[in-house]
Design a protein around this nucleic acid. Sequence first.
DNA 1: TTTATACAAGACAACAAACATCTTATTTAT
DNA 2: ATAAATAAGATGTTTGTTGTCTTGTATAAA
Lengths: 165, 165
Amino acid sequence: MRLTRAAEYAIRCIIYLAKQGRGVLANKNDIAERAEIPPHFLAKIGQDLAKAGLIEIRQGAKGGFVLVKEPRDITLLEVVETMIGEIYLNDCVARPSGCNALSACGVHQVWIRARNQLRDTLRQATFDKLIKKKICIPVSDVKNLTGLNNTRGRDNSPEPVKNLP
Amino acid sequence: MRLTRAAEYAIRCIIYLAKQGRGVLANKNDIAERAEIPPHFLAKIGQDLAKAGLIEIRQGAKGGFVLVKEPRDITLLEVVETMIGEIYLNDCVARPSGCNALSACGVHQVWIRARNQLRDTLRQATFDKLIKKKICIPVSDVKNLTGLNNTRGRDNSPEPVKNLP
DNA sequence: TTTATACAAGACAACAAACATCTTATTTAT
DNA sequence: ATAAATAAGATGTTTGTTGTCTTGTATAAA
């Protein structure tokens, strides 16, 4: 009953892009480094985010990820469910056909309620609100990372980040 | 982000016992059969429930499980967390030491809120309320299952149950 | 006191999911 | 053309879930 790492990484990736704003291209390795995501893993995560229409992937030299939607139109729920599928919390709710009492079951009703609350809370959290607050990723000077000739010229970055949500 | 089967089984087990009432002994194999729990698995689950003080296990001939607490004093949260540990929903909340922004992080705050709501909802669901509703386990004629000489005399039971919460 | 019944305790195994890496191919800017 | 950058997916490692099995111990009843 815990969020997967892939989903936590996806959230950080979107935060990074949202900080830059919609339509701004970000180098994949820059994202990986700043958001502390294993680079190859980020590639896979990016593909899921692209399929869901959250980002666009530019191939080739000077390629990278671009946020497609406005941060205010992206919810935490959307990012999470893109990565882990629709949230159900328990099997009985996920596959009602396997449950003989269906919605009449008292336990079932509690789980339905819990699920709805959880999804509502995550849906209320839009990325425009999230990036206004202090956030786990230090992206204050994001834009000049992908600057002209600094393929590895980023070692004056702030101290490395630990694990973050 | 899904409840484990062990926890779903534990809930069914407690419902079975709660229907009988506190202090009433139930044969383990009867519970396993009626609540559709693999018998050996129920043994392990029972041990966890006993350690948590929810049930008492009687060994030897005519042994079985006995509910220790009143159904009104047992919550769904208690049973669930006995089986899967305290609910955190994400790593960042579970191990704040690994997160550099701590409670100041906007994403963190959303998860804290979601977690509290979920736990509150599960805490409000006490088993006296749950067994008053229609429930997935058919336990109407529970008491005469463990009756005198019916070690295998239970084949007049209602049609078998599918998967339940 | 012997026997059958029933649970304890924990080792073990099959399977699935999560987590991550690596390789080969393709796309694009210069 | 060449180098940079991602695509796509095969593969590997680790962890967790979901059980089963074996050996031992406790208890009731003959």
